[in-house]
Amino acid sequence: MPLQVDGLTLVIGGERLIDGISLTITEPGISVVMGFNGAGKSLFLRLLHGLVPQSAGSVHWAGKANSEDVRRRQAMVFQTPVLLRRSAAANIDFALKVQGLGSARRRDELLELVGLSGLADRPARLLSGGEQQRLALARALSCRPEVLFLDEPTANLDPASVALIEETLNGAAADGMKIIFVTHDVGQARRLGAEIVFLHHGKVEEQSPASAFFAKPASSVAQAYLEGRIVI
C-alpha cells in the first residue's frame, strides 16, 4: 500500500507543527520514524492515519486520499494503550465485533500470538504495562490491517514484552503488512528498521535505507542524534 505525502502541514495556534512534509514510502517492511522529543512524530502518525485533519497538503494511500474507508484497512497502537474496562478477551472481542468478524477462535489465536492466552479472563486494566501493550497490539492486528502504525509502543516496557512485540512485528512485516513505527530508541530502530525517516521541527530531515542511515546519516541533525548530542 504505497504512501504518497505532499506538502503535509499542520498548524495549531499559529505554529507550523508539521511543516510541509513530502515523501513517498513504497518499500514494504518496517519504516521507522525517528527524531527528538517534540519533533512532530506523533502528530505525523496521526495525520497519516487520518485521526487529525491536516491544515494543508495531502496523504494518499495507493492513490486514495485519507478517508474512513482507507482507515478501515489500517490500525494504530498508541504510546499508552487505551483498553476497555473489560477482560483481555473481551477487548479483542469488541474489536472483532466492530469489524463484523467476531469469532472465538480468532480471538484465541490473537491472544496466543502475543502470549496472553493464560490471561484472557483478567480485567485488561489490571495487566502489567507490557501485557497491556501486547493486548493493544493483538487488538490492532485483529482487523488484519494493511498498514500498522505504532507510536513508541515499547517505551518503558519490560524487555520480554519488547522482544515479543518486535518479534510479532517482524512476523507481520514478513507477511506483507506495512509498518510505520515511531521510536526514539536507536537500538530498536537498528533492529527493526528497513528504512528510517528522520523528523526535526516538523520537517523530514532525512529518509534513507536503514543500512545507509546507520552507516552515515546524511543530515547533521541525525548525525548528532545518533551520537547522543542535543540539537535545539
Binding site: R71, A75, F78, V82, V98
Partner: peptide, 12 residues
C-alpha cells in the same frame, strides 16, 4: 479517554 482509539478503529 476512548475517542481517539475508537476513531482509529472506526467504531460506529
Amino acid at each position: 479517554e476512548y475517542s481517539e482509539q475508537f476513531r482509529s478503529m472506526n467504531v460506529p
